[in-house]
Every structure is written in structure tokens, then in C-alpha cells.
Nucleic acid binder design. Sequence first.
DNA 1: AGCTATACATTCATTTGTGTCTGTAACGGT
DNA 2: ACCGTTACAGACACAAATGAATGTATAGCT
Lengths: 206, 206
Amino acid sequence: MRRTKEEAEKTRGAILDAAEHLFLENGVAHTSLEQIARAAGVTRGAVYWHFQNKAHLFHEMLSQVRLPQEQMTERLCGCNGQDPMLSLRDLCLEAIVNLARDEQRKRIFNILLHRCEFTEELREAEERHYAFVDQFIQLCEALFARPACRERLRPGITPLQASRAVHGLVIGLFSDWTRDPALFDPLIDAEPMVDALFRGLVKDWD
Amino acid sequence: MRRTKEEAEKTRGAILDAAEHLFLENGVAHTSLEQIARAAGVTRGAVYWHFQNKAHLFHEMLSQVRLPQEQMTERLCGCNGQDPMLSLRDLCLEAIVNLARDEQRKRIFNILLHRCEFTEELREAEERHYAFVDQFIQLCEALFARPACRERLRPGITPLQASRAVHGLVIGLFSDWTRDPALFDPLIDAEPMVDALFRGLVKDWD
DNA sequence: AGCTATACATTCATTTGTGTCTGTAACGGT
DNA sequence: ACCGTTACAGACACAAATGAATGTATAGCT
């Protein structure tokens, strides 16, 4: 019965995949490891072999889509000579568009936003996730606070507000669209919506 | 042991209150009716007396904060002679500010956004809630689609996009702020953020 | 060829939650 | 004063789910 290494890796993937679909359908808390195992064509023994418990399985699932933070930092640093606020805009847009194009990403964000409750057992996964989010917001605020950008903000708009508004809009659109993809078409509508906010934040946007 | 009617109503309230706090702390799925009962100083017998099951309890909890939809419709109809888009802006702002002022509302929205997974047993509550949300978005879109408003939208912005953006921003800010109230101060920051979006959507905003 | 660690399957004990049923004391009307 | 109903408490039966323990066949190395 013993499988080869590649086969083992395949079952590991199958478990992650099954978990993804079951979490989406039934919620994280309402999905048992037994169900996941059955859907993956194995028993709970295999699940406990590859993952410590449900929380770790959940965390591993999340890491599949969370882009490395260094990459994000780099893209927003403005070292590429581009207007950093334009880079931020592009990053936001890309995030929304990627969500629409990548089915797995769509499923996982749907789980994250609508199908899981961050309770004690998922606390660690929650903290890591929100640490990532907070870092993005911080980066955003620092970006708007640079003199070159700050003076382009409309009067009355602080870097704090700009950063929160940008993240709020993106997360809100994420949340609404994952709940009901018929609400709008990311490929068509995301750009004007994001640009609208930036136009309202920045004096000379277009 | 039998209580008077007012006392019974008080225990009902105590159960709802205990559920609210426990749901917030442990998540809906991870809170048992036993825990709720104990926290309310009663037994599960009392809980089952007042509510059919956890789903109904959850639903009753939600109804405590959901404002009647007729009221919302009325406020946005523009019958009061005010600019309907300004009415919408005020409504959004008021929603965010109310969230900050009303601790119970804050708790319940926190549960709704971060501490519950809409699975089979809560399907009914989910549908009712999202029906409400969708109605708001529809109302919003219809508002932007009125000739008087539509022609004031910036070129390239459709009523669909405007409505989705507005709801997205509000829900995103709800979501972020309930997660971490230190992110911004609704009383100070909500207005410039909401206005920024409207400025980006509407030509002659200010 | 033989040994060992791997990749699971199977079984077990324990816990936990749920729904229901029954008991019961006191309220509220007659 | 009596009685039916109310507002619970307490007990029971049943169904999951978990984590750990054990079994086992084989892959991979020596």
C-alpha cells in the first residue's frame, strides 16, 4: 500500500483540494476531517499524516494564494521610476482581476471572507493573515505620506484616510464579488471603480 | 420557579445578549447552546423554550439591528426634495457612524462579517441578510440611473459601477473597522473617505 | 536480501453537542 | 381554591468528531 513520494505529494494535494471545496460549501467549522478524507479518496489517517490538524490544514491552504510580501513591498517602493500611486492602483486592479481569473484564488478568498470564523483554533492563521493585511495598509499609508504624493492628495484627505479607503474599497469589492459574481464584471468594472476612488483622493489623477 | 411575563422576557434578552458575546468571542459554530445557557444563567431548557434552535436564535439576533427596508427606501427616494445622491452619501456616512456609536451594532456586525460561516443551518438567515444587501445595491443603482443623476456621473462610470463601488467601500470599511477599531476613527475619517469616492464618481460633487 | 522508515488504513476511547422528553413550581385567570 | 398553562430545569438517547494508538504493506536504502 505504501506510495511513492510523488504519489504521496499527490494525495497531499488531493486533501488540500478536497478541503478547499468542502470548506467553500459547508464552512470550515462544519467540515469534518472525515468528510475531507472521503472526498479525497483516503481516510483520516492520511489527513493526520500530512497535517497536524484542521487548523494547520487551513493555514497551508491559505499559503497557497498569499503572495510573498516582499514582492508587494518591492512593487510599491517606486524604485521602478513609476508614479507610486499609479503602482498602487495597478496592484489593486491586478488583485481584483486575478481573483476573477484564478478559480482557486476565488474559492480561497470566498472561504476567507464568507465561510470561516476565526476562532481559537484558527487564531494563528488569523493573526498571520491580518498581519499581512495590516502590513499592506501600513505600506499604503507610508506611500501616501511621501512628500511627493502627500501634496497631491486633495485638501482634507490624510494619508491614513487614503490608505484605509483604498483597502476598504478593494476588500469590499472582493467580499461582494466572491459572494455574488453576477454583481459586476471585474474585467470591465474594476478599473473605473478603482480609478473613481483615486480620482477622489488625488488632485491631478487624470 | 415559574417567572412572570416580564421576567421571561428578561431571560430571553439575557440569552440573546449572552449569545451575542459568545458568538463574537468564539464564533457562531463554535458556540454551543450549553455555553450560551450557562452564560445567561439558565439551562438549555430555557434556550429551547425561547428559540427553536441556534439558527433561529442567530436570526433573531440579526433582526435586532437590521433597519426596516421601507425606511431605507423612503430615505433614498428623493421625495424630500434633497439631492438623492447626497441622501445616499448621508445614509452611508450615518451607517458607519452608527456602527461606531452603538456597541451592540458593532458586535453584531463583527459577528456577521468575521465570526460566522453561512452554512446550511444558517442558510435562511444568510438569504434574508443578502436579500437585504442586494436590495440596497439595486436601490443604489436605480438612483444613479435616474436621468438627473446619471448625467452627473463622470464619463465612463455606469450606474452599475457607481452602486457597486459605493456598497463595496462601505462594506469594506465596516469589515476593516470592526476587525480593528484602531484603523481609523469613523467620526473623523468616514466623511472624507466617502466623499472622496463620490467626488470620483460625480462630476460636480463639490 | 533484509531492514527501516514511510504512507497510509483501521480501530478505539473519549468528548461534545443536539433534540427531545419529562418533571415541576409558580403564575394568572376563574 | 382550583387548574391549566407557562417557563423553565434536568435527564436521556443518539450522533458526530476528535486524537491517539495500532496495524500493515511497501518503497527505498544498504
